[in-house]
């Protein structure tokens, strides 16, 4: 279902819409998944230069966490730019406050230059779809982690680094809702669902933050 809104599906417009009408969502979703794999495979074969899976995972994770603070990643996936214009674009975003170290920016630049170049196919999978393929729901860390207890002192820094841009200093709210004394802090199910999988304009953090880090942030928020 999630893939229904993706550019992958737009690419298969007529076929998929017909499928949806006649055979319903299940078939459409299945076709989307299949088509997604086909497109991803085609995209990877068409990449300029080689991106190792580990590099791709790092770049996708960074794009998802850092670029999506200001804009959704669909804006990135629709670009088809030569290396020089990608370089200028990434530099501009760094100048404007994108939270990337020099090495991280280089990793992002290498990925977008290889993937979204002028000769790339019109339709490519979304960043979120690629993340889901590379690191299935919950991220690779999930299996190794049992129940975790948050540590508020660690959560403060993690919050400032990952959440503050939208939820404001001191969790007082901003583009995103105020989290200090927010009732969601008392509803573990809703809190974890929202952080791991996103909600509305909020991106999913499951592939970016470990469960321990999320628990730390929760512990800190509870003190606000």
């Amino acid at each position: 279902m999630e893939r229904m809104g993706s550019p992958v599906c737009h690419g298969g417009g007529m076929t998929l819409r017909t499928a949806k009408k006649t055979s319903g969502f299940v078939l459409a979703a299945w076709l989307c998944t299949l088509l997604g794999w086909v497109v991803i495979t085609a995209a990877q074969e068409d990449d300029r230069g080689t991106i190792q899976p580990a590099q791709a995972r790092q770049a996708l994770t960074l794009i998802h966490a850092r670029c999506a603070v200001c804009h959704t990643t669909d804006l990135i996936v629709q670009q088809r730019l030569p290396a020089d214009r990608w370089t200028v674009t990434v530099e501009k975003m760094m100048h404007w406050g994108a939270d990337l170290s020099k090495d991280e920016a280089a990793a992002v630049l290498q990925f977008v230059t290889a993937r979204y170049h002028p000769g790339a196919p019109d339709h490519l999978p979304s960043i979120e779809e690629e993340l889901a393929m590379i690191a299935p729901a919950g991220g690779p860390r999930q299996g190794s982690e049992g129940p975790v207890t948050g540590v508020a002192s660690r959560g403060a820094g993690l919050y400032a680094h990952n959440c503050q841009a939208c939820h404001g200093e001191g969790a007082a709210g901003g583009a995103g809702p105020k989290l200090a004394r927010n009732t969601i802090l008392k509803n573990d199910g809703a809190f974890w669902e929202t952080v791991l999988h996103g909600r509305g304009p909020m991106p999913a953090w499951g592939a970016v933050l470990s469960h321990q880090e999320i628990a730390d942030i929760h512990a800190w928020l509870a003190t606000r």
Binding site: G5, H71, T72, D74, P201
Partner: peptide
């Protein structure tokens, strides 16, 4: 709208 078939074709979700 999410599927590009409604009144508007979404280019960027946010903004």
């Amino acid at each position: 709208a999410g599927q590009g078939t409604g009144p508007l074709t979404v280019r960027v979700t946010r903004p």
